[in-house]
Amino acid sequence: MDKPKNIFTMLIFIMLIVYLFVTAPAPLQTDLAGRKVETKKVLEIINAINSQVRNLYTKNIVGAGKKSGLRFNEDWQEEDVFAGPLPAQFLRETSRSLEKNNVQLGLYLGSDYPINTANLFSGKQRDFFKQLKTTGEPKFFYVEDIERYGYMFADKAIAKPCVSCHNKHDDSPKKDWRIDDIMGATTWTYPDEFITLEIALELISALRSSVNNAYAAYIDKIKQFKNPPALSSRWPKEGFYLPSVAHFMEEVDRRIAVETMQSLLLVASHEEKVKTSSGE
């Protein structure tokens, strides 16, 4: 009596197995496919690129620009302010552009003595920053609620304008900054601990594109100036000029290319060794 019932159940079960596993159409692209590298190592490369950009913008655009008559202001986006972004706002603009990209790479800047209280570290980030200030070493951690890894790097006073501007600013809670002081930290976030080399390249590309967009936003803003600086291949150190987006990015690429390539090859070769030694 039960035999036909059992056969029927078995048949359904077999069909289900076939439907789900056997005669499968092409599987959806899995997020675990491809060779993996530590995200931490990739974020180190990404941070090195960002440091180069920050250095270039701070010294060659803001530092030299102030001497040539260019103006920079934290409220640069306000309609009645005719100025460019300061380095912190340039990073914020890069971060904003990065977030619009689909790569889930987060970029944030903070400090224990920020000019803008909205950038004050708190909670875990404050604790990690305390350790970072003591050792100078970056901190890698996990943020449970958003399920993302965080990597915090020291942000040093790399040029005179950093120190003088922060020491003179009315809202600055600390007025005795010196060159090379750790003034704050750059924090990167990403959801996965390991990523494929392909995604690593995507992240680097996304950062480069975001830097391009941040500088393009500044160039867009100068169109509203009554007396805008000339856009060309010339830089502020030569006078009242700004490099075009293409020239700015050309200089970015010149500065980051070799180091980035070397670091990527190192990460890739390390990954090879890991695979070889583990016998995979």
């Binding site: 977030e99 987060g106 944030y108 570290f121 909670g123 958003i146 993302r148 924090t187």
Partner: peptide, 20 residues
């Protein structure tokens, strides 16, 4: 571009209490 409180800003680790 001038959003004072863009959602992406609050993915920074330190905003965990506000997120909660």
């Amino acid at each position: 571009p001038t959003d004072k409180h863009p959602v992406s800003r609050f993915l920074e680790p330190r905003f965990s209490k506000a997120r909660a």
